[in-house]
Simulated assay, not measured.
Amino acid sequence: MFKEVFSLLAVFIGLFLFGMIVLRNGFAQIGEERLRNLILKLTDSTWKGLLVGTVITAIIQSSSAIMVIVIALVAAKLLTFQHSIGIILGANIGTTVTTELIAYEFSAFIVPFLFFGFIFLLFPGKLAYALGCLTFGLACIFIAMNGLQDLAHPLASIPWVHNFFNVTNEHHLLGIAIGGVLTAIIHSSTATVAIAMGFIGDHILSLPAAIAIMLGANIGTCMTAYIASIGAGQSAKLVAYANIWLNVFGVLLFIPMIGLLSSFVEMLTSNTMMQLAHSSLIFNLVCSLLMLPFVPLFTRFITFMHQKETISN
């Protein structure tokens, strides 16, 4: 049973990531160059950068992709480091659209989405291809979500896994560590949150523990941007460090408020998956809006902390 359950878990995680890739590929038809031009034209201030980062990330469903583009623009000296902060803040908000989407119950649409997605992919043209990727990718994501929920109970029936969940429910720092490490490995905070959704949906993980995992996922997702910044120059490295510090500050701010946040989202909806999705949205929205007025000060802080290191590298 042990091997079968974990094999299925790996399959569903892989299917979820595949669905995300297909979904993003459909949105990518607008072209990376167009995204670059749009970012350059509309990010002459921090608050504009926040709006642009939010909208574009919500559309293409990938904060990591936005971060890679931003790092490239900063490395090419087409975008200033300070203006990039606004885009990072917006990207953190925009990525929560995916978690809100997958929290809904769309099981009835899986077969139609698979069918129409396959049909659209047979037609020529960018629009048909984009629609095919969108519907087929969503179907894969929803299949994976159903699978993760169904696996939650048999997985928790394994004694040592059950004990592990009990410890995670009692110690939020462990949940944060799990979220960070898992996201750094699979390079998708959305997938990590989706896994947590499967477990809280079966009442194996408590909502506060799932929120802790979500907080850790926000730190773990910084790994992609850091890797992209290696060898990209001094300013680009500062962008990656800024992304890390923003999420670390946010997590430190919310650790004492996990219980309060849990109680608040429970008042908003009785759906446990939606509760976690709303928690992710509230966390990223509050952190980004709180940081926005302090971007110049934060920019100086990052420069002071990492200037010598980036020069030596």
Results as ranks from 00 to 15, higher is better:
F106S: 00
F106C: 00
L121A: 01
R36E: 08
A65D: 01
N163W: 13
I85T: 07
K77F: 15
L246W: 12
T221E: 02
M20Y: 03
L9K: 10
A242F: 13
V286L: 14
F27I: 00
N243V: 00
L17H: 14
S64A: 12
N218T: 02
I110C: 08
L79Q: 03
L238Q: 12
I85R: 06
I186M: 09
H278K: 08
G216V: 06
A10Q: 11
W47L: 01
V22Q: 07
E266I: 08
A225D: 04
N284F: 13
G180I: 07
V239C: 05
L260N: 06
I176G: 02
I30F: 15
D44R: 11
T299V: 06
I143Q: 08
I311M: 11
I176V: 12
L285T: 11
L246M: 12
A194P: 14
A144F: 14
L173D: 05
E309W: 15
A277V: 10
N247L: 10
A217E: 02
I302P: 15
L114V: 00
C133T: 05
T183Y: 13
Q82L: 07
G180P: 15
I200S: 04
S262E: 03
Q275T: 10
I143E: 02
V22C: 06
S107Q: 14
N218V: 00
L173A: 01
A196T: 04
N247D: 06
I102C: 07
D202G: 07
I141A: 00
A236I: 10
